[in-house]
């Protein structure tokens, strides 16, 4: 079948909301865009374990330690679901890890910020996981079968993360003056980076139009960002805290919250490797991979040895 006809059939399927599965024909660009998006999503989950892993040894109670460990373990699993989905598109795990370590592949800008206090665990759960949920729920219906299914699995687990985070902040907000101050300080530091998680404004987003046509992306960055702001502006009232945006105001006509200007310079810097923790994150990832090499090699050697022994037994 000529390529033009294949492309037409492909777009027909997309328009009819028929899912594309691994062995189906797909345009090279569709495959490449998905490999890029899914692998970067996977990298974000794995790198995202670092700012929270930072506080496991210093959680205030055993319950907080256990729930934080569970959350970080979940993130590792989420990374796996996504790497698996990406691998169905023809890229290998080694290649993806190489791209992350070399800086060729990006990960979510938010994880380049430091976690400075225990309250950050609450702010990250509430704001960062909250933003992730808003981003991820629409992708559960994206055109690519494996990506959509991975998203469905992730979304089920993500709501525990957000509730755990909010509960931490709620507890702090009802505590001593120092705890309340720590809570507000964490919100102040994590608010704008979370708002930036949704990416550049619609007119500055190069990949959006084609991603929408292929139903990889279902809503624009600005739409999702507005949803996030509207949601958090209400939720913050329950904490009796404030969002660090003097321009945040309910707009009766639009039935949405107006909010202040985003510092896109900061976003660009962080994405390009000049955020507060970019180097630290990459160093940690590369070290973990290299330090773990002996485990991987030992596992292979053991497996081969078992096969040899099994083979020898079967011939006797």
């Amino acid at each position: 079948m000529p390529v033009l006809e294949l492309e037409k059939n492909f777009q027909d399927k997309i328009d009819k909301d028929i899912r594309i599965e691994p062995k189906d024909w797909m345009p090279d660009k569709y495959r490449q865009t998905l490999i890029r998006q899914i692998s970067q999503h996977a990298h974000s989950e794995i790198v995202g374990m670092l700012p929270e892993g930072n506080w496991i040894s210093r959680a205030p109670t055993l319950k907080r330690k256990a729930t934080l460990i569970a959350k970080v373990q979940d993130e590792a699993g989420h990374g796996l679901y996504l790497y698996s989905a990406a691998e169905t598109l023809g890229i290998s795990r080694d290649e993806m890890i190489e791209q992350l370590h070399s800086g060729k592949a990006k990960y979510s800008s938010i994880f380049n910020y430091p976690s400075l206090s225990w309250a950050d665990m609450g702010a990250i759960g509430w704001l960062v996981d909250g933003a992730a949920i808003i981003n991820q729920v629409p992708i559960c219906r994206c055109s690519h079968g494996p990506y959509a299914r991975a998203m469905a699995r992730i979304c089920k687990e993500e709501s525990f993360h957000q509730r755990q985070g909010f509960e931490i902040l709620l507890t702090l907000s009802k505590g001593s003056d120092e705890q309340k101050a720590m809570c507000q300080d964490a919100i102040n530091r994590w608010w704008w980076p979370s708002v930036m998680m949704f990416g550049p404004g619609d007119d500055a987003s190069p990949n959006s139009a084609q991603s929408m046509r292929w139903k990889i992306k279902r809503f624009s960055n600005d739409e999702l960002r507005q949803r996030f702001v509207d949601m958090c502006a209400e939720q913050v009232k329950i904490l009796c805290m404030t969002i660090p945006d003097p321009d945040l105001k309910w707009n009766e006509t639009k039935q949405h919250y107006d909010f202040g200007a985003i510092n896109w310079e900061e976003f660009k810097n962080v994405i390009n490797g000049n955020g507060p923790c970019n180097k630290e994150r990459m160093t940690a990832r590369i070290k973990a991979h290299e330090d773990g090499a002996w485990v991987r090699e030992a596992a292979i050697a053991y497996a081969k040895k078992s096969l040899t022994l099994k083979g020898a037994l079967e011939t006797t």
């Binding site: 691998e87 795990r93 096969l307 040899t308 083979g311």
Partner: peptide, 19 residues
């Protein structure tokens, strides 16, 4: 190389670990 050692069925790029 043991005589009865079958190759571990891996693809290139999986770090030697099968999928």
């Amino acid at each position: 190389k043991a005589p009865l050692d079958p190759p571990v069925p891996v693809r290139k790029g999986d770090g030697g670990w099968p999928l």
